[in-house]
Simulated assay, not measured.
Amino acid sequence: MKIAIGCDEAAYGLKVEIMKHLEGKGIEFFDFGSKKGDVVLYPDVAYTVADAVAKGDYERGILFCGTGIGMAITANKVPGIRAAVCHDPYSTERSRKSNNCQIMTMGERVIGVELAKYLVDIWLESDFSGGGSTAKVDRITEIEKRFTAK
């Protein structure tokens, strides 16, 4: 699995810790920034990562900012992307199993490093379970197409 990663300056420290965690697991990733000391607009980083995932260059993405909220909002603007804020185990698992999210977002000001590592593991090990959720995810895609077809 190839993962795209990005952050703003508010979450640089958490991103670095998660990159070490992924390296330790032998998971391939690419860091789209920001770099230490860079002040960036998080929508620019979120768009870059989400676009790379939408194009199929990466299977999944992980985005970090102060709360995770702004990254999720921005990533969800990219057609074909489903992103969710993941701050607890159940929602993290369901973001994959029920909603087939390709991008998880987290906030360094909201959760600690050890919880973040645990959530990343849950998210990476979870797959879309289909079943009753398939029609719901398909409807999300249909609604999205109403706006992107214009």
Rank of each mutant, 00 (worst) to 15 (best):
G66I: 09
D121F: 12
S91P: 04
P79Q: 03
P43G: 04
V78S: 04
E28H: 10
D38W: 12
G66N: 09
T148W: 06
L124I: 01
T134W: 02
I81A: 06
F32H: 15
E17H: 13
I62M: 15
K25P: 07
I111F: 05
S95F: 07
K97A: 07
E59K: 15
L124E: 00
T48I: 10
F32E: 13
T105C: 14
K35P: 01
V53N: 00
I18F: 12
R94Y: 05
G33S: 09
C86R: 07
D88F: 07
D127C: 02
R109P: 07
V120P: 11
F32D: 13
H21P: 00
H21T: 01
E93K: 06
F64C: 14
V45T: 15
E17W: 06
C86G: 11
S126W: 07
S91D: 06
S126G: 09
D38V: 13
G131C: 01
K15A: 12
I27P: 01
G6W: 00
G80V: 05
M71F: 10
M104C: 14
R96P: 14
E144I: 01
K150I: 08
A4R: 14
F128A: 01
I103Y: 10
M19G: 04
A11N: 01
D121L: 12
T105Y: 05
A54I: 05
W123P: 07
V110Y: 00
E125T: 06
E93Y: 00
D138T: 08
G131H: 01
I140R: 02
Y42G: 04
S91W: 03
R60C: 08
K117R: 15
P43V: 02
Y90F: 11
D138R: 06
E142K: 11
T141R: 14
E59V: 06
L119C: 08
K35D: 15
I62C: 01
K15Y: 13
I143Q: 03
W123R: 09
A50V: 12
W123Q: 11
C7K: 06
